[in-house]
Amino acid sequence: MEIENQAAHAIVQPPMRKAKFAIGQVVKHRVYPFRGVIFDVDPVFANTEDWLASIPEEVRPRRDQPFYHLLAENAQTTYVAYVSEQNLLPDDTGKPVSHPQVPQFFKELKRGHYVSRDRALH
């Protein structure tokens, strides 16, 4: 009986999807003119509700997909971006990303993919 009660109160988690893109991969946004290198991945949405609500509803991404942290660049500047998997495409230009933090995360660019720098975890 106790096991049945535990099962009845279990939290149902959405199934985890495998990330399509990898850390060190250079990607571009499907709609907006920016590109970047992935330095972290969240298996599902892990930003603030305010951030999500700031995106117009007609283009707001689903929560149940990987979200990627990018060292991003556009024609004017560099910045950190948080992008849903549905809005990314591979960037096959082979060009390096000019973000100033790239050397903190990566050693070099090899065949269009950055090699991660060994870093101590906190």
Rank of each mutant, 00 (worst) to 15 (best):
S54G: 13
N74T: 11
E85I: 08
N47C: 11
H29L: 02
R117I: 01
P14F: 00
V27R: 03
Q6S: 11
W51L: 14
Q6H: 12
E4W: 03
L52M: 13
Q65D: 03
Y82S: 04
P96N: 01
K20E: 12
D92C: 06
F67G: 00
K95D: 09
Y114W: 04
L121N: 15
E108T: 13
V31N: 10
S116L: 14
F39V: 05
T78L: 00
F67A: 04
I3C: 05
A72V: 01
N87W: 07
S116Q: 14
R63L: 15
A53R: 15
A53H: 13
A120Q: 11
I11L: 09
V12H: 03
D64Y: 03
A10F: 10
D42H: 12
Q104S: 11
L89M: 14
Y32W: 04
P33I: 09
E108M: 08
D40K: 14
A120K: 13
K28P: 01
A10I: 09
S116V: 09
A75K: 15
G36T: 03
A46T: 06
E58K: 11
I11W: 06
G94F: 00
Y82T: 10
F105Y: 15
A10P: 02
V27G: 03
E85T: 05
V44I: 14
F39D: 09
R30S: 14
M16R: 05
S84E: 01
E49T: 09
A22C: 04
P15W: 01
Y68F: 14
Y79Q: 00
Q65Y: 05
A75R: 15
I38G: 11
A7Y: 04
T77S: 11
V37N: 02
E57A: 14
T77I: 06
F21C: 01
F34K: 08
L71D: 08
R117S: 02
F45S: 08
P61T: 07
V12M: 03
V31S: 09
S116K: 15
M1C: 11
M1G: 15
E49M: 03
I11P: 01
Y32F: 14
A75Y: 06
A19C: 10
M16G: 00
I23H: 00
K20Y: 05
E4V: 12
H9L: 10
S98H: 04
Q25R: 00
V27A: 02
P43A: 08
K18N: 09
F106M: 06
L109V: 02
E2Y: 10
N47R: 04
D64F: 05
V26M: 03
G36D: 03
R62F: 08
